[in-house]
Design a protein around this nucleic acid. Structure first.
Lengths: 165, 165
DNA sequence: CTTTCGCATGTTATATGATAACAAGTCAAT
DNA sequence: ATTGACTTGTTATCATATAACATGCGAAAG
């Protein structure tokens, strides 16, 4: 367990974000190499933008950033890069927000659960094995073949809950 | 257990749909009476439209139906009725599809899990207590206060899985 | 080399989903 | 009969997402 915080992840806790970003980028490179996919400039920049914060970003927010840096300024530019990242497990799409977020554990325990703070927009991506198992049981009971799952909770992160109280 | 199929619900199985519809409408009336809210013609019709099938419908699909029957033809007409139904627990919003579906168990075990068939669009709404509990544990570990949860699985219903095989 | 082919990037145009802001109608309770 | 809360309707606009097509670029076959 050198670099995988596994179940007791920092989540909303403060942490060394530079390292966090760098590690995710490295893992992304590895993963793409394995799959024979290319981390082109737009794609790389898109991933970096998502990695800057533990927040979900709308496609148009990402697009503005890309456009400002000389990439194309039409929606498909952002959507394609985001779709690529999602396909390769380097980012997630948050259904609840119509938005995207960088994946913090590429390659590990996919289909995580998300805790989304409605006050500060911060996001925690957590290993969701127990939750998925419970859902898998439910599906099995009903003869349903699960392909993708969406497990998201909206609420207040510890910091915001404290402030409100 | 006269009318609550509880955990082993028909889900994707064939069933007496007229009764299913009628019961949901009755329960809706009860529930709204309790809350002092009105089941006006648009709202009632919107609920009936959702109840016709165990599918999720987009707001614009509902709107077309309403408009064809003499109600307003502008988006807010549908969105308002749908929002009202969701607020009172008579319908659910499916994040994964940007769509809405009638609630089949108004008043019982809310925040259910959904199984959505990507082939025939059929939908099962299931009591999700174990799944929610697992998610609640995860949230508690991270000091997160959950307010709303989204638990959805996309895949193949028994019928479609059988056909494909 | 250079041709070819697949993929990446870019564009224009349009589809789809959702809300803000305001006007007018309904209806129960005074 | 009048008020005031709520409901319905409108116009206008915003936000999200994708289809369809043109161009460029680079690796591999000739």
């Amino acid at each position: 367990m050198s670099d995988q915080p596994a179940s007791s992840a920092p989540a909303f806790a403060p942490h060394d974000h530079r390292a966090c970003e760098a590690r995710a980028l490295d893992q992304a490179r590895d993963r793409l190499a394995e799959n024979g996919a290319r981390l082109t400039p737009v794609r790389r920049r898109t991933l970096e933008i998502l990695l800057e914060s533990h927040r979900a970003m709308g496609a148009y927010e990402v697009l503005d950033r890309l456009a400002a840096e000389g990439f194309g300024r039409q929606p498909p530019v952002a959507y394609r890069a985001l779709e690529f990242l999602v396909e390769h497990g380097l980012a997630h799409r948050l259904q609840r927000l119509n938005a995207f977020a960088a994946c913090l554990h590429p390659g590990h325990d996919h289909a995580p659960a998300f805790l989304i703070c409605r006050s500060c927009d911060m996001l925690a991506e957590l290993p969701a094995a127990p939750v998925r198992d419970a859902l898998a049981d439910l599906a099995a009971e009903n003869g349903f073949q699960v392909e993708r799952v969406t497990i998201e909770a909206l609420g207040l992160c510890p910091a915001c809950a404290g402030t409100a109280a």
